[in-house]
């Protein structure tokens, strides 16, 4: 969640940085500096997104989906998935919320990596070609929406059934 929050916070700066990346708005030196800051920002966001999905998938998710022992009367408090599924009122948090979160989150780092690579290696083209800037902004915004959806669902699910 910390990585997710960092990713979300960095998005607004990156979005407006990309939006304003126009050769008619910036001097040569200003464009160079803007591209340098954008490269650092987009790679920072990309690393956060990868850390969030890798830790989420391989550290947090196994805790969440751990199976309770087959002992009658065992408390489900330490088994969030089974705690949610044990009550029809909360089952949707797993069947809809967690299922969506675990999958949509993986789209964010893939899209963010493409944006970071383009900004770093081909930023000059983004200055000159509005159609490229638009599609890169679309990828960037979609990465943000995916991360935001996963982050929000994660927070809500953690409230309904905390992962300890």
């Amino acid at each position: 969640m910390i990585f997710g929050a960092g990713f979300l916070l960095a998005f607004s700066g990156g979005f407006f940085g990309l939006w304003g990346l126009r050769s008619d708005w910036l001097t040569g030196e200003g464009a160079k500096r803007r591209l340098c800051v954008l490269a650092v920002g987009t790679w920072g966001m990309t690393i956060l997104a990868w850390l969030a999905v890798i830790l989420g998938t391989y550290v947090i998710y196994p805790w969440y989906r751990a199976k309770p022992p087959a002992i009658p009367g065992v408390s489900l408090a330490d088994y969030p998935k089974y705690l949610l599924l044990s009550d029809t009122q909360t089952a949707d948090w797993h069947e809809f919320g967690m299922e969506w979160k675990e999958h949509i989150a993986w789209l964010a780092p893939i899209l963010a990596t493409a944006v970071a690579a383009i900004v770093t290696r081909h930023g000059r083209l983004l200055l000159q070609r509005p159609e490229l800037r638009r599609i890169v902004l679309f990828l960037f915004s979609t990465a943000f929406l995916c991360a935001a959806t996963a982050g929000l669902l994660g927070a809500l699910i953690n409230k309904a059934a905390p992962t300890r």
Binding site: H103, I110, A114, I118, H122, I135, L139
Partner: peptide
Amino acid sequence: QYFDGPVWAAIISASAGCAAFG
């Protein structure tokens, strides 16, 4: 000279990777 091919390669491959995941 700057070619836009590598930019489109990054864009299309990321989109295809997402579609493959789906």
